[in-house]
Write a protein that binds this DNA or RNA. Structure first.
Lengths: 131, 131
DNA sequence: GACAAGTTTCCAGCCGGATGGAAAGTTCGT
DNA sequence: ACGAACTTTCCATCCGGCTGGAAACTTGTC
């Protein structure tokens, strides 16, 4: 499978595929006699794995370290487990902050909604969009 | 209050304070006779708000527009209300996504904790994360 | 009146995560 | 045999959000 087909199946660009190879996320694939990258189906799986891991907010560098462990054939999942737990804690923190920010924004929105609409006639007093 | 004190109280760097000013997040403060920036306590509040909003994943440019609404204070209009509501909707969406990611991660972590370490040998498949 | 610490402006560079484009080589369809 | 579509490498650029450093100035302390 050539790079274009791989990219399509994994729903990324060929640029991204080469970029991932360059940062060690994808092993260097076999090459055709003419030098084209030649992937097997594992590469699709791997790219999908990357996508999934990325969707949970893991940075590419973190995904690399998980995959390196995997590639090394480690017999322990401790690395992955520790990473997951750390990430989970970060996620909780982020959710908390989001909810705090949401509360503040809700306050702003409520105040805005209670205002007299007729006070909104002066174009100079609504600076939000204009500026 | 000089820039260093402000930075300390808001837990950002002086570099960041000047940067925020440069992108319109902070108004240009008063200056001492010698040209030092001279802030009041509102600036601390504002920086803290920025930090909170930023923690939600809002871009600084978006925070700028929210703060402009805040600055408009007692005045509002359709545009500003719509803007806020859009931000709120995005925020809710983001919270939902994070909670989903959290649930997924929790599942993974649980699975990892229950796994027999000796079963983690397949070089092409990390059993913790693989789907 | 010396010296450190703080501040000023300005310009450069870094990070992650790509994306763009040029110039050259390859493969496929007709 | 030709052209389009694809692939190669390499280098540049983008974006947001800072961060670093230089050179000059101000302030506070001994």
């Amino acid at each position: 499978m050539k790079i274009g087909e791989l990219a399509e199946q994994a729903d990324v660009s060929t640029k991204t595929v080469r970029y991932y190879e360059s940062i060690g996320l994808l092993a260097e694939p076999a090459r055709t006699p003419s030098g084209y990258r030649d992937y097997d189906h594992d590469a699709v799986e791997r790219l999908r794995f990357v996508r999934d891991a990325q969707a949970t907010g893991l940075a590419l560098a973190e995904i690399v370290s998980i995959l390196e462990l995997k590639d090394a054939g480690s017999t322990s999942c401790q690395h992955t487990t520790a990473l997951l737990e750390r990430h989970l804690a970060e996620l909780d923190e982020q959710i908390t902050r989001l909810q705090q920010a949401r509360a503040e924004l809700t306050g702003l929105a409520d105040r805005a909604a209670r205002l007299d609409p007729s006070s909104c006639t002066d174009p100079n007093r609504c600076q939000v969009i204009a500026r």
